[in-house]
């Protein structure tokens, strides 16, 4: 199955209720596939498919859908994500859950439509003003992208905050065998949602707190929530069970190439390992620090100017050597293999 098709399928299977989107290369295929699923009408939960007038409208419609307690999603790329930052910031403080699939393209500006991983810093550090944080995940196979769609919905509703799946044109456009177990669609608990107060007290989805003490209290709660979120940090480690000559750290499509490099290096007797964060935020810093103790050298492989390396420094204090590929270039196996020295 193609990545885009698989992501669309997984979203519908997971109980997606509304999709709001604006076409942007290279994410449009996800939207097209969802449109096809919507027209077939096989999924009763999937009630709204909406092509909006801009990414700004997309994010606000997501906000509305999330605020009324519905599972909603959009897919976009870097330029769209920039436009969405405002709405994401509001959603973070208002505690509104939804999922954004960011199909990373070459940036900044219009850049190009080749795969890059350059939205990482933006998504990790603050996707919006005022200290916005979002759950960020990065799959490295089509199958994993599918599970992360479902996990994204789960985490977003569990912690009531926006979630972003960082992927790129390679994963979204490649064909791969998938495995998917059909299960019951998600039914998150949404007693907080604003859809008419009924007979009970009213619900307020609000991001205005005019008194400093009110805002401080709410932000304190949010920080506690982010602290609790840390236990959801997910990662995978390959060949990390002994002393290592080099530990590669990579995620997304770069991690596939890094994994190939590690396997090739192992075959020629070099003890190489791979640490692959699945969730970028929360970041599995502790796990990485533990593995890194066994390694002589740390190398990050990514398709940007070394954004992951900076995140690792902030999270663990380690300073890995960075291997960065810019402008839509995919890491070259030989170069990655050479980097262990």
């Amino acid at each position: 199955m193609q990545g885009a098709e698989a992501i669309a399928f997984a979203a519908a299977e997971s109980g997606l209720e509304a999709y709001f989107g604006y076409p942007i290369t290279p994410s449009s295929e996800i939207m097209e596939n969802l449109a096809a699923i919507y027209e077939k009408g096989k999924y009763g939960n999937f009630r709204v498919f909406f092509q909006t007038s801009s990414e700004i409208e997309s994010i606000n419609m997501l906000f509305g859908a999330g605020a009324s307690g519905h599972i909603a999603m959009t897919a976009t790329s870097g330029p769209g994500l920039s436009l969405m930052a405002e709405g994401i910031s509001y959603s973070f403080l208002s505690q509104v859950p939804f999922l954004i699939i960011d199909v990373n393209r070459g940036g900044p500006g219009l850049g190009n439509v080749e795969p890059e991983q350059s939205d990482l810093s933006f998504v990790y550090w603050s996707l919006g003003h005022g200290g916005t944080r979002v759950i960020a995940m990065s799959p490295f196979t089509v199958s994993e992208a599918m599970t992360l769609v479902k996990k994204g919905f789960e985490l977003a509703f569990k912690y009531r905050m926006p979630a972003v799946m960082l992927t790129d044109g390679v994963i979204v456009h490649m064909y791969e065998n998938i495995s998917w177990k059909t299960s019951e669609p998600l039914r998150p608990e949404v007693s907080w949602s604003a859809r008419g107060r009924g007979n009970g007290p009213r619900h307020e989805i609000n991001s205005i707190y005019l008194e400093p003490k009110d805002l401080r209290a709410v932000k304190g709660d949010l920080l506690k929530k982010l602290e609790a979120l840390k236990k959801e940090a997910a990662y995978e480690c390959y060949y990390c069970d002994g002393p290592l000559d080099a530990l590669y750290i990579s995620y997304g499509i770069s991690a596939r190439i890094a994994l190939d490099a590690v396997r090739d290096l192992r075959r020629s007797g070099i003890r190489a390992g791979l640490f692959r964060p699945i969730t970028i935020y929360p970041f599995a810093g502790e796990a990485l620090a533990n593995v890194a103790k066994m390694a002589k050298k740390l190398v990050t492989v990514e398709m940007n100017e070394g954004q992951m390396a900076k995140i690792i420094k902030a999270e663990t204090g380690l300073e890995p050597e960075g291997l960065g590929y810019l402008g839509g270039e995919v890491p070259r196996l030989e170069e990655v293999m050479e980097a262990w020295r």
Partner: peptide, 11 residues
């Protein structure tokens, strides 16, 4: 005293 959602500016 009805359900309330705060929108961003103009949205």
């Amino acid at each position: 005293n009805v359900d309330y959602v705060q929108a961003p500016h103009g949205r």
